[in-house]
């Protein structure tokens, strides 16, 4: 179950997507998210889906990994879609039972929300994080937010926290699995009983996990001190972030495509909510 967590992991490569400046990737991801929620035309969503598939192809991420990344959110997508179907009750009524009412607009909205979540995961969680090394991503965050340091915004600290969190996710997942197996071997039961009983069964997992996490934190802090860590002041980076032609090309393409997709909102065709 925990092995399915592939989100937030990096797959090294040399594709054009891998080579983009991570700051540019962050910016493009932001534009993408905004546009994703502005669009309200099914044809536009289909075009966007095709383009996303093209980007996945260019980035050389295996299709299996994309599906694996989507699997954990499957339930969330279904629930969101259903809630949205019942939420919007304007338009032609198709089915009614008590206070529940399904309308054409409701169905459209449900489909749109499902598409939005799936695209969001593919675009941000998969394309962005799979093709960008965690350090570059956190460097980009630090770099983008560093103008706000003047006002006391802890850009470096946040970036360092992200780096460490990403680094320790697989370690802690592995450890959790070990603890679960150890408890199961002693006859612990996590799968049956009332919710309260199951929640109680988690205590013997969480306690050792937290104890170990604190110990790790302590040791890591000393190890960082030993390696001369002294905060963000006067720190240099091995890789200097640099924009190049490929970044400008990516920006131009993205902006044009997004403008086209948004303009479809004002056109008289396609299905919309």
């Amino acid at each position: 179950m925990l092995k399915d967590i592939t989100l937030g992991q990096f797959f090294p490569g040399t594709s054009p997507i891998h080579r983009l400046d991570p700051r540019v990737k962050l910016l493009l991801a932001l534009i993408f998210i905004v546009v994703l929620f502005v669009i309200n035309n099914l044809v536009a969503y289909i075009i966007m889906g095709v383009l996303l598939a093209v980007v996945v192809k260019i980035s050389q991420i295996p299709l299996g990994l994309v599906l694996k990344g989507l699997k954990p959110i499957f339930v969330v997508v279904i629930i969101t879609a259903i809630l949205n179907i019942f939420y919007n009750t304007t338009g032609e009524v198709l089915w009614e039972w008590g206070f529940l009412r399904v309308t054409t607009n409701g169905i459209m909205l449900g489909i749109f929300m499902a598409i939005r979540i799936v695209y969001l995961i593919i675009g941000v969680a998969i394309i962005l994080t799979y093709t960008t090394s965690p350090i570059l991503l956190t460097d980009a965050v630090e770099n983008v937010f560093s103008p706000f340091k003047r006002f006391g915004f802890p850009a470096h600290e946040i970036a360092m926290m992200m780096t460490i969190a990403i680094r320790f996710i697989p370690t802690l997942v592995e450890e959790t699995e070990k603890i679960i197996n150890a408890q199961k071997a002693r006859g612990a039961d996590f799968e049956t009983g009332s919710i309260l009983k199951r929640a109680k069964a988690l205590v013997p997992i969480l306690v050792p996990l937290f104890v170990s996490a604190f110990k790790r934190a302590d040791e890591l802090a000393i190890a960082m001190e030993c390696r001369c860590y002294q905060g963000g002041e006067n720190r240099t980076r091995m890789r200097v972030l640099q924009t190049s032609r490929i970044d400008y090309v990516a920006i131009v393409i993205t902006v044009l495509v997004c403008a086209a997709l948004v303009s479809m909102n004002f056109m008289e065709f396609g299905w919309r909510a």
Partner: peptide, 28 residues
């Protein structure tokens, strides 16, 4: 130290090795 897992700061090998010289302000 004893436990290598608790000394490695960055996920990717070469980026972790770069951590100390980065802290020391060595040019890229």
């Amino acid at each position: 130290f004893q436990n290598p897992d608790n000394q490695i700061v960055a996920t990717v090998v070469e980026e972790d090795v770069a951590f100390a010289p980065e802290n020391l302000g060595v040019p890229p």
